[in-house]
């Protein structure tokens, strides 16, 4: 599944980061690399972008861009 498909409050482990060019480099620089745990915090009031948490900080990115990030769901909250 991809990052945007996580339920709010759920975590996942990144398995691969796709995309290309500047977007991909930025994602990598911000610490979105394979084996990193991310939590989907919330979806913006208008349905896009999303807020995620990783490495102890909060990051926002668009749904379209987050589809490049494949995660393995590890949902603890349910």
């Amino acid at each position: 599944m991809t990052l945007d498909e996580l339920k709010p409050g759920c975590s996942g482990i990144i398995t691969s980061v796709g995309g290309e060019g500047a977007l991909r480099l930025r994602l990598l620089d911000m610490g979105l690399i394979p084996k990193t745990r991310v939590t989907l915090r919330k979806v913006a009031p208008m349905g896009d972008p999303i807020q995620i948490q990783l490495r102890g900080y909060e990051l926002t990115l668009r749904i379209e861009d987050s589809k490049n990030i494949v995660v393995r769901e590890e949902c603890e909250s349910v």
Binding site: L23, M30, E58, L59, L61
Partner: peptide, 9 residues
């Protein structure tokens, strides 16, 4: 428009 990847401090 280009990617929007931004920290929420």
């Amino acid at each position: 428009p280009v990617p929007f990847v931004m920290e929420l401090p």
